[in-house]
Amino acid sequence: MILGVVEIFHEKDIVIARQTARELTKDMGFGLVDQTRIVTAVSELSRNIFKYAKSGRVIFESVESGKSRGISISFIDKGPGIESIENAMKEGFSTDKGMGLGLPGVKKLMDYFKISSELEKGTTVVIIKWK
């Protein structure tokens, strides 16, 4: 079930995506540390959309598997894509003088992490955190 959608277009939308993540995870009853992990992940991946693709969309969904409930968040853009996902996932790799900790860091914070990308077509990252 879709819980919310945030369009990333301006810098301020990164803040809105964070606020949305904060409200939804609180409502779903996630513990404080998990709320923080999720809000931080949303901030990193929304900034990547804004920085590298200029615009895109963040979709928040509730997911179920057996008895467990979780939140799935997709980050979709039609930007330049990523040349080498293997490199992009390395700690310290950045094409923009960044810290290069966003993608590998988010993967560590989440239970599920999937990135797909095609040059000149765009990038999609899906993350899930189970309760």
Partner: peptide, 12 residues
């Protein structure tokens, strides 16, 4: 504490 945990897990 929740921020300290998240920062270290991130690798920062």
């Amino acid at each position: 504490p929740n921020i300290a945990i998240t920062l270290i897990e991130l690798g920062f």
